[in-house]
Design a protein around this nucleic acid. Structure first.
Lengths: 156, 156
DNA sequence: TATTGTTATACTCTATAACTATA
DNA sequence: TATAGTTATAGAGTATAACAATA
């Protein structure tokens, strides 16, 4: 009762217990699954990112989109090239400033984005199947809060 | 009260509301931060992954480590080369089967891993500063559950 | 002949830099 | 001269394939 060493010195939580580690590793696994599923639609995650940005009303010039997405402008060119090729976006020169290319989702693009959304929803169900409804919602909500703080698009 | 359209057709939750999207994007942001912080220690995330695997008692041959980490054996060679160079791991031929290289964390390696852990803890605090203690724990725990299901190392 | 580790090579993703057209 | 977009090039990260040593 007045032991010199009442309890063994509980070793500190390991790296694997940190939110950073768990979020990073699980995010990578989940992104790999999403990437694989997207392949059936001929898309990569960044294509989806561009469509999401357009859909959520981001300024539609390529350079502004690059800033929004935090990627290089040259990458937006490649992403837009592909999305235009499959008819998912329109790309028109801004008549007011003919240097600018203004991107816009087409009907096809919106349908494609809806397909991606359905796909994500299906993966969500698989991923969170073992969680209770309230746990799942708490997770979604907390991730949303942290996402907003990190400047990520987080509609709801 | 018997309206034809009692409520506007609530449009379905957007892609950005999915756990898959939020986990993927936030994971990527968090990993970027961790990567940046690790640079001060001369490490990349995969080096940490290898140390974590060794620390948690994974079978220590390079090929088995490659399987554990789900990376190519050639990558383990490069990671082990670097960790050995900085004195973080010992690499000895298994006398029972001289084809095998057996890796083991050194004292230096354990200290380095502790530094990485401290670093993750600091990032955790920054990341989750806006969350209440119970929210933060719920997040950590739920991520742990999903991580275990995905086969990730998740000590606690 | 099969397996472990290593080396050589190639591929994917993305950025930086050089360039063109427009302002 | 500065800016939007494009093209050319390069780098990081990682895998695949060929190879060497050991079983």
């Amino acid at each position: 009762m007045n032991d010199v060493n009442p309890r063994p010195p509980a070793d500190p939580p390991p790296l694997t217990a940190s939110v950073v580690f768990r979020l990073g590793t699980l995010g990578s696994v989940v992104t790999a699954r999403f990437t694989e599923a997207l392949a059936a639609l001929g898309l990569k995650p960044k294509h989806v990112g561009l469509m999401v940005a357009l859909d959520s009303g981001a300024p539609p010039s390529q350079l502004e989109l690059a800033r929004t997405m935090a990627v290089a402008p040259s990458l937006v060119v490649a992403l837009a090239d592909h999305l235009q090729q499959i008819g998912a976006v329109d790309r028109v020169r801004d008549p007011a400033d003919r240097r600018r290319q203004v991107l816009a989702l087409t009907g096809t693009g919106r349908a494609l984005l809806a397909d991606c959304t359905a796909l994500a929803r299906r993966l969500d169900e698989e991923l969170t199947a073992s969680l209770g409804a309230s746990e799942r919602e708490a997770l979604r909500r907390t991730l949303g809060v942290l996402g907003v703080e990190a400047g990520l698009p987080t509609g709801d």
